[in-house]
Amino acid sequence: SRSVIRSIIKSSKLNIDHKDYLLDLLNDVKGSKDLKEFHKMLTAILA
């Protein structure tokens, strides 16, 4: 869910600018399909 993804971003080791950017992107995501794609992208970034 959106709140879980937000929590993953906030607890990541990324610097604050990257976190803010990803949180802004997350706010722009519409629909469950796009949310799944965003989660895939985030997982790849944090891997």
Rank of each mutant, 00 (worst) to 15 (best):
S1I: 15
R2W: 13
R2N: 05
S3F: 09
S3N: 14
S3I: 07
S3G: 10
I5S: 02
R6Y: 07
S7A: 11
S7T: 09
S7I: 07
I8K: 07
I8Y: 04
I8S: 04
I9Q: 00
I9L: 03
I9G: 00
I9P: 01
I9N: 00
K10Q: 11
K10Y: 09
S11C: 06
S11P: 01
S11D: 09
S12F: 06
K13C: 06
K13G: 10
N15E: 07
N15L: 07
N15F: 09
I16L: 10
I16F: 07
I16H: 10
I16Y: 08
D17W: 13
D17K: 15
D17G: 05
H18N: 05
K19R: 05
K19A: 04
K19G: 01
K19Q: 08
D20A: 15
D20Q: 15
Y21Q: 08
Y21T: 05
L22F: 04
L22H: 00
L22V: 02
L23K: 01
L23W: 03
L23G: 01
L23F: 05
D24N: 14
D24V: 12
D24C: 14
L25H: 03
L26W: 02
L26E: 00
L26I: 03
L26C: 01
L26D: 00
N27S: 10
D28F: 11
D28I: 08
D28Y: 13
V29F: 04
V29L: 07
V29S: 04
K30A: 06
G31F: 06
S32L: 12
S32T: 12
S32R: 09
S32W: 15
K33Y: 07
D34L: 14
L35Y: 05
L35H: 02
L35S: 02
L35K: 02
K36D: 10
K36E: 12
K36A: 13
K36C: 06
E37M: 13
E37Q: 12
E37S: 12
F38K: 00
H39T: 10
H39E: 08
K40Y: 06
K40T: 06
K40R: 13
M41S: 04
M41I: 07
L42V: 09
L42P: 05
T43G: 07
T43H: 08
A44Y: 11
A44W: 12
A44K: 15
A44H: 08
I45G: 02
I45R: 01
L46H: 01
A47K: 11
A47P: 04
